[in-house]
């Protein structure tokens, strides 16, 4: 034990020394502190009502880059998460949810204080998604914060309480599929609109471009809405929260529920 701590502290000192040398410029020239050209363009146009063909009306430049300027990339990232969760589903095929196996959870005081904490976590999560285009945050962050609710509930109230509260893997799967389908629908909506009026539009288009007049709503009652950025953030919250909660519930299942899956699954 003491030897471990000594090795750890010496490794930490090595990292510290390397960091100091790097900071003083001993390991080569440090990158310049000015904004590069691409960053300047994004920072100048993320919210710029005077340049209507390049702006996304999103005050958070990161959200503007993620869902507007690089929207297709993020949709494919969402598809990667979809594929990963599908893999977990295939691994756990044949599981049966059983109510009544027991599981009382922790102490009463702990349960009550956790309930208050869960309310606060839910508020943080929803505000991260709804404010994703104004302040740091966004759909993925909000979704993973929401999954913390399920993680805490499993440890404090037991998985049995989640079943009794009506949270089933099947409904989580449905919510996830609906949210992903809606993300694709919003991304393809400009194409459908352009077909209707016989004009030009782009996949995942947010605001009007030089040769296309299609635009998502930029403001709602004087509040900047950033068009599709807001809609994508909310849908991503549902998709990520449902996916992560689904995987957590599958991981936390009891032996009796997994028996059939362990024998090879199938019908």
């Amino acid at each position: 034990m003491r030897k471990n701590i000594a090795v750890a502290v010496s490794l930490g000192t090595l990292a510290l020394t390397l960091g100091m040398v790097l900071h003083l410029g001993g390991l080569g020239v440090l990158p310049p502190r000015i904004l590069r050209n691409l960053a300047q363009v994004v920072a100048a146009n993320a919210y710029n009502p005077w340049n209507e063909t390049l702006t996304s009306y999103s005050l958070n430049a990161v959200a503007a880059a993620i869902w507007d300027y690089r929207g297709i990339d993020t949709i494919f990232e969402t598809a990667v998460l979809f594929a990963a969760v599908t893999g977990v589903t295939a691994l756990f095929r044949g599981t049966v949810e059983k109510v009544g196996l027991g599981g009382r959870g922790m102490l009463f005081t702990l349960k009550t204080s956790t309930k208050i904490a869960l309310l606060l976590i839910a508020l943080v999560s929803v505000s991260l998604a709804l404010h994703g285009h104004l302040t740091p945050g966004g759909g993925f962050q909000a979704g993973s914060v929401f999954a913390v609710i399920v993680a805490l509930s499993i440890t404090v109230f037991s998985i049995e309480a989640l079943y009794n509260a009506g949270l089933r893997t099947k409904s989580l799967m449905k919510a996830r599929l609906v949210a992903l389908a809606l993300i694709l629908f919003i991304a393809l909506l400009p194409l459908a609109a352009s077909l209707a009026i016989n004009g030009v539009a782009y996949i995942a288009q947010n605001q009007a471009k030089e040769d296309s007049a299609f635009a998502m709503p930029a403001a709602f009652l004087n509040t900047p809405l950033a068009g599709s950025v807001f809609i994508f953030n909310v849908l991503e919250l549902v998709a990520v929260a449902a996916s992560l909660s689904y995987v957590l519930i599958l991981f936390a299942m009891r032996k009796e529920e997994l028996e059939h899956a362990l024998k090879g699954g199938g019908k």
Binding site: V62, L128, P136, G137, G138, F140, Q141, S144, V145, A147, V148, A151, L152, I154, T155, L244, L248, F251, A252
Partner: peptide, 23 residues
């Protein structure tokens, strides 16, 4: 990088430990 920090808090301090503890 507050965006990365916000994504890292729930993953590193709740979801990953829970998964490992279950394992």
């Amino acid at each position: 990088a507050p965006d990365v920090a916000l994504a890292y808090i729930p993953v590193s301090s709740a979801l990953l430990p829970l998964t490992l503890i279950v394992v």
